[in-house]
């Protein structure tokens, strides 16, 4: 649905994004993850045709964004970083404008507005002036604007910014509900955001893609070796040596009763043998399990790795 090839954007001497390549298939929800200033918004602005790329191609729905901008824009619903809302208009008037701007057929305008209002839960404020609404409502008006012509592709730049936790959950549910018939790209620098909604994650840092995978795949890939964690009643050196002796274990570090056991990658299931070694040495297992690498760690690892490479 979206095909990005060799995309670069330079602002004068500064490179905002550098040779991006990725593809988003129909019905997928893809998350752009990266720190602020990584190039997420720039990429989205190029896909939506708001600004041209310095190099590379983008096709959306089969149309090149540079050669056939109108067709591309018609296929996209876009929520920019700052919701593009007119403060002096009422919610309903604004959505009416957005629908007409997207050439929704006259007979469908009212139905589409009602649908967008219902989806984004704006019923209570539909006739109020946008400027008087809270930040959360404004954000939802921005989202409603992107939805109102029911486009096949949705590009959402930080869609849940400024919302309270309950609204965040609502918007996540809404986004998940739109998947399937809609192709969605959303960006965030908040990790739970993408874990909660996206099927696939593209991690961007300093204008480059540093990783692209499903959440599980990303976690697997980054674990490199698996870590096991064990809390024992009384750690003793012979026990630690026994665990170290298990084939596949590359190291054990102990801080008081807490042991962290490093395993070489692709060794299969070793937990049973590690536990056996611990029990036989009489340390007394209180807690034992695989250590989960959180997305935060992955994120930090990826982005700092990249920085380290550049520093060399």
């Amino acid at each position: 649905m979206i095909q990005v090839t060799g995309l670069s954007k330079h602002y004068g001497p500064r490179t905002a994004i550098d040779d991006l390549n990725f593809e988003v298939k129909k019905g997928e929800i893809v998350g752009f993850l990266g720190p602020n200033g990584a190039g997420k918004s720039t990429t989205m602005k190029i896909i939506t045709g708001f600004m041209p790329a310095s190099e590379g191609d983008v096709t959306v729905n089969g149309f090149d964004v540079f050669d056939r901008p109108i067709e591309v824009k018609r296929a996209i619903g876009y929520l920019p970083e700052t919701p593009p809302i007119y403060m002096e208009m009422t919610v309903r008037d604004f959505l009416d404008f957005a629908a007409r701007l997207n050439q929704v057929a006259k007979s469908d305008v009212k139905r589409q507005i009602d649908w967008a209002i219902e989806k984004t839960n704006l019923g209570d404020v539909a006739n109020r002036i946008i400027g008087n609404l809270s930040k959360g409502y404004k954000q939802r008006v921005g989202l409603a604007q992107a939805l109102v012509h029911n486009p096949p592709v949705l590009i959402l730049d930080e869609p849940t910014v400024g919302l309270d936790p309950k609204q965040i959950i609502e918007i996540r549910e809404l986004i998940k509900g739109l998947a399937g018939e809609h192709t969605i790209v959303l960006s965030s620098h908040i990790l739970p955001e993408v874990t909660a909604t996206c099927g696939r994650i593209i991690v961007i840092n300093r204008g480059r893609i540093v990783a692209e995978d499903t959440i599980d795949g990303l976690t697997m890939r980054l674990k490199k070796g698996l870590l096991l964690q064990m809390t024992v009643a009384a750690a003793n050196p012979s026990g630690i040596a026994a665990i170290k002796a298990v084939p596949g274990v590359t190291g054990v570090s102990a801080t008081g009763p807490k042991l962290v056991i490093e395993l070489a990658p692709n060794q299969g299931e070793l937990r049973d043998r590690v536990a056996k070694a611990a029990v036989e040495s009489g340390m007394g297992i209180l807690e034992f399990g695989a250590e989960k690498v959180s997305l935060e760690e992955i994120f930090l690892q990826l982005t700092t790795e990249e920085n380290a490479k550049e520093a060399v």
Binding site: R74, P80, A98, L101
Partner: peptide
Amino acid sequence: NQTIQLLMTSPV
């Protein structure tokens, strides 16, 4: 107000 983004990304 950056509403220009709405106009510029609409099919007009």
